[in-house]
Amino acid sequence: MTVVPVLARLGALGLLLALVLTPQSFAPVFRGLTENGAPPIYTQTSLLDLTLAHLTLVFAASLVSAVLALAVGIFVTRPVGAAFLPLSRALVNIGQVFPPVAVLAIAVPLVGFGTTPTLIALVLYGLLPVFETTITGLREVDPVVVEAARGMGLGARQRLWGVELPLALPLILTGLRLTLVINMGTATIGSTVAAKGLGEVIIAGLQSSNTAFILQGGLIVALLAVLIYDGMTLLEGALTGHESRD
């Protein structure tokens, strides 16, 4: 690990913490982006609270997406579920075919405003990366290794959990990393249906033509996405014993 990436990570983390913990210290920086005496810093709700709510929403949705996609991905790579692969792929792709805004428009009349419709949209939108990388990872496991495990007396479930999934883990983690980053940005639209998150800052800026608010919300989301992507890359390297090639 070289010094430059470490310094970049620490710098990004420091900037993020400063933005959410001491936002008023950035008032001189953002004041030039305001007009007609508009406030340079969003203060209607604590930026720290909005950031924590945003992270909670993203991680909850990504966890559900990962569990569902992993389960379906495993099922369709087994002989008993192979025939369901086209149908499963078509269903998983629904989240990508329909934009999250359209999902929100459908979900709100059914479940109301707030966090629930946003969770539904994020879960659907985050299925595809984990689903596809799970299938690819399991298919790329060397059949010789699987046969060797069978020869050692391991049953189908033991081979799956003890051999196939560990070998497929790098690709599965890549899919989870993509899901987290996708959901980090997409979650901002949840504020249009009263879900608490950083989208509140961006939308307030758009409604009041306050570029400072838009930049604050966008910068925090971008820093979170970069740090989570980088953190997942490091986690992948730690769990698999090698550094990611990304």
Rank of each mutant, 00 (worst) to 15 (best):
T115S: 13
I203H: 04
V146P: 01
P109D: 01
G199R: 03
F30T: 01
E200L: 11
L224Q: 04
E164T: 08
P143H: 08
R159Y: 05
Q158D: 12
A53K: 10
A61W: 04
P100I: 07
N93L: 15
E35T: 14
F131Q: 05
A195W: 09
V111A: 10
P109R: 01
P99I: 10
G199T: 02
A71P: 00
T174L: 06
V163A: 11
T43P: 00
L223Y: 03
G190P: 07
M152C: 11
G114L: 09
G199V: 04
L234S: 13
A238K: 07
A187N: 02
N36M: 06
L33N: 09
L169V: 04
V92R: 14
D246G: 14
L55C: 03
V58N: 07
I135F: 09
T240W: 11
V92D: 14
Q24E: 15
N36T: 04
A102I: 15
V3T: 14
L239N: 00
T211R: 12
S208G: 03
A148G: 15
A82E: 11
E140I: 03
Q158M: 09
F131P: 05
T186I: 08
L224N: 06
T233F: 00
V141A: 08
L219V: 10
V76Q: 06
V141C: 02
T77I: 12
V108S: 02
L206P: 00
L16H: 03
D230Y: 09
P79R: 15
A38P: 05
A38I: 12
Q44D: 15
G205I: 12
A90F: 15
T56S: 15
A148W: 07
S46C: 05
A238E: 02
V80C: 04
T77Q: 14
P79M: 12
V92G: 13
L234I: 11
R31K: 15
A149Q: 03
G14V: 06
A82Y: 06
V6C: 01
N93A: 15
G155R: 13
L70D: 11
R150I: 14
V67T: 11
L165M: 12
A225E: 01
F84H: 11
P166A: 02
G153T: 13
V103K: 10
G73E: 13
L119K: 11
G137K: 02
K196Q: 11
G114P: 09
D230H: 09
L178M: 12
A149V: 01
L13G: 09
M184C: 09
D246C: 10
L15S: 03
H242K: 10
S62V: 12
F59C: 09
R177E: 02
P28C: 05
A90K: 08
G14T: 07
I94T: 15
L215K: 02
P40L: 08
